[in-house]
Design a protein around this nucleic acid. Sequence first.
DNA 1: CTGAAAGCGCTTACAG
DNA 2: CTGAAAGCGCTTACAG
Lengths: 355, 355
Amino acid sequence: MKATINDIARLAGVSKKTVSRVINNESNVGTATRERVQKVIDKLKYSPDPQARGLASRRSFLLALVYDNPNASFITEAMYGVLDHCRPKGYELVVHPCEVTNERVVDDVLDFVNRLKIDGVILLPPLSESGSLVAGLKAMDCNYVRLLSVVEDEPAHIIRFNDRAAVAVVADHFVALGHSNIGFIQGPETSQSASERYEGFRTALTAHGIDLPVSRIAKGAYTFQSGVEGAEWLLNSPEPPTAIFASNDEMAMGVIVAAKKMGFQVPSDLTVAGFDDSPHASEIWPALTTVNLQVRRMGSLATEKLLYLCDRDADKAASVQHELTPKFIQRQSTAPPRGYKQHKGQRKTSPPYAV
Amino acid sequence: MKATINDIARLAGVSKKTVSRVINNESNVGTATRERVQKVIDKLKYSPDPQARGLASRRSFLLALVYDNPNASFITEAMYGVLDHCRPKGYELVVHPCEVTNERVVDDVLDFVNRLKIDGVILLPPLSESGSLVAGLKAMDCNYVRLLSVVEDEPAHIIRFNDRAAVAVVADHFVALGHSNIGFIQGPETSQSASERYEGFRTALTAHGIDLPVSRIAKGAYTFQSGVEGAEWLLNSPEPPTAIFASNDEMAMGVIVAAKKMGFQVPSDLTVAGFDDSPHASEIWPALTTVNLQVRRMGSLATEKLLYLCDRDADKAASVQHELTPKFIQRQSTAPPRGYKQHKGQRKTSPPYAV
DNA sequence: CTGAAAGCGCTTACAG
DNA sequence: CTGAAAGCGCTTACAG
């Protein structure tokens, strides 16, 4: 019932090799021949069988999304981004969540890639940071692109989201509002993005002459609960900060809840900002000031690179944009500290609270 | 480099047909032969090529998750559930989000299934409600299982989450707390689960002798914003309800935000409950009382059914549990109405507020 | 219980 | 610019 290459060849009066050339946009087909074949293809709504194609050419036309990330909207957004770009090109997406804690992750992923002959892999953070996984993929000559917060690979293999730059905007925002006693809740030490956000925030504050002492740095784990605990610790200190930046939204939500329980009004008593722009960031009161990573866009760009790599065109892959600066999203959880008066024109140059 | 069926056959001293029998657990292989073959398979870590297998047998060993649902955690949880069950059996999962609003959805999905020779499809709500899609799948003899809130298909093809029963528990809870002036925010009319939740809630209230007049029913759209608007409308009425049940968490979040803005304390001035137990339901203050759908479990059970269907064993597929009652999760957003005293023992039988 | 032959629907590697 | 042959790694349909 489904048309095959033989049907097309017969009806177009050519060999199946010629049909194959048309399908694959290869050269060396006469214009007239090509048109004739294409017409038959269109008429029968023929599309080549990916299995047969793959079996013969050792491909699968399958991309894989490999991740170990608890953030549901990050995953689904990335998926949309990948599909936006790969579907029109005839590739489909297989999902492969896994557990970094599992010692056999690398083997598991390589097995999976090998078994399905996956043409290309998109690695989401934090798994994208795994050197051994990438080494394994390279060794078996599997194409990959990593979503990463630092430039740790060639441009052809990376989409970098510049957390440092993004976080600096948050710091600038805090300072512009008049905050100088600023608290920070850090992500897990194992995460690159967590240290990027930390470094970026600290550096930006320093540029404004503002200190970030260890007494105002809480260790978190990117979880809601760790945000709660971090906030309790910070707000119970002798001189509680007037603003807290949590390294992700999840923790920022924890900060807001903890603050409320402790009697701090957000934002009048306490400014709070997060990072991720998760769907729920705008669905609380006050709506959370945060940073949007543009995950869908990243997924799309990563796929563009990946498909070039699948075509063995490393140059084109490298030429696709490989750096994205996340977007600062100001909402209602940030405000000047209580009693602070803003002096026009002084904001950035010499704020009254500067040392 | 990768071992093939020919390698195994040669090393085991049998024909490849025999190896094939071992791989597929077919009968008619001598015990000794089987063991010998298996040993070689294990030794070479051989696993059959799904493409070759599929090409010859017209299968793909690919399952598809087809959905049109904005709820990210629903998607990812379902994915985990599916993978929990299908990976050990050698099946992988392709994701296929689509848009119900698009007129060509059905064709798009059928095309996709046909092109990839998808062995089985799992349909998530609300797309699972599409009769034309299911008809199309049936017509092309593609296996499917639907996650649905009503029993609208044979047991072999459905996992039903009993929203009616779940919602009744919420109603009982409201009544037990002492509420009688209760508001309801409805989901979109096009959604089956929305009307199930409505019917279930109304029925349960009626059983307690409590009325749910149209003046206390707001039309929502399962979105945050519609929850905000619904709450504003309900709370601005002459006799605002003391409790609001929103048909999903998203809207319940909207209710809480709106209530706060309008000066209502939750739960002391206003009890709020939602439905879905989204990850953020527990990450706000007060934490949201809600209902957990057990999506991961549903995904797993659906896959169990689906794989039986793939094996042409409709009986076994039908015998897999096909009804799940969502779990009521009590948190902090529900409380007795202000000034209400509970009379022991009177709760269910003849509550003081009963007509 | 076991196997030889043919074929699934394509592509590769050649030849012309 | 075009095509005939062989083969990708399995299963089906048959034979014994």
